[in-house]
Design a protein around this nucleic acid. Structure first.
Lengths: 114, 114
DNA sequence: GGTTAACGGTTTATATATGAGTCATCATGT
DNA sequence: ACATGATGACTCATATATAAACCGTTAACC
């Protein structure tokens, strides 16, 4: 990250990350798994898991989702042992083909009055 | 990141990130927003948004969620204008208070000195 | 109460993610 | 058909996220 940039996050974003972090911590304790164990199985360090469980916004999404997956937390309401995720991806990609490939801003203001 | 670490990701993790990236791209096109516009409103660079829309696992979760939020995508089935997210957080934290704070592993073999 | 493993909070070195910039291509609105 | 703005695919410098190590505290089991 060149040119130090202070990120601003909407409240909704922060809450979403916070919720996921809490779900992760609860799931880990409930399953009686040590932080070290979960970290190793998720291929991350223990300090990384600590930040994830604290709801750090700067963690890699892949790492956070991997921990959630290891702990059996369903993402986007798609069960892990089903094909719903793949199906959702296909459906979304299908919608994409129906859309224009580029977004073009109108140079002229169209009279869209009424 | 010291000691170059190659991360391994489960299929489910990859698909979850991929799905979110597709949802983001579809939402952006549907709302007729330029990549540059969305990037600016999300406080990230255009190249960052490119990686997010490609489903890069190494993007910051805060950045990805922020883009999703800007585009009106609901995370964890919680509508952005409601209190469901905060309520879910509270409920999860409440569950946490009922759990032990540490996970203890070694259930040592009890006195076998008959 | 005593033992000890688990946890939180540091620090440090380094691999790398990110922002900024450039360029070629092409889809899109006129 | 044409002009051009949007996009993808790079490169590069650097701010920083991360793994590893350590330590003091604390909670869990005996």
């Amino acid at each position: 990250m060149p040119k130090s940039v202070t990120r601003s996050h909407s409240r909704y974003t922060k809450e979403a990350v916070t919720l996921l972090s809490r779900l992760i911590r609860v799931a880990r304790i409930e399953r009686n798994l040590t932080a070290q164990e979960v970290a190793e199985r998720s291929c991350i360090s223990r300090s990384m898991l600590q930040r994830i469980e604290k709801g750090d916004l700067k963690c890699e999404i892949g790492a956070v989702f991997e921990v959630a997956t290891i702990l059996g937390i369903n993402l986007f309401n798609a069960e892990q042992s089903s094909f719903t995720m793949a199906k959702n991806i296909r459906q979304t990609e299908e919608r994409l083909t129906l859309l224009p490939q580029k977004v073009r801003k109108k140079t002229k203001v169209i009279n869209d009055d009424f």
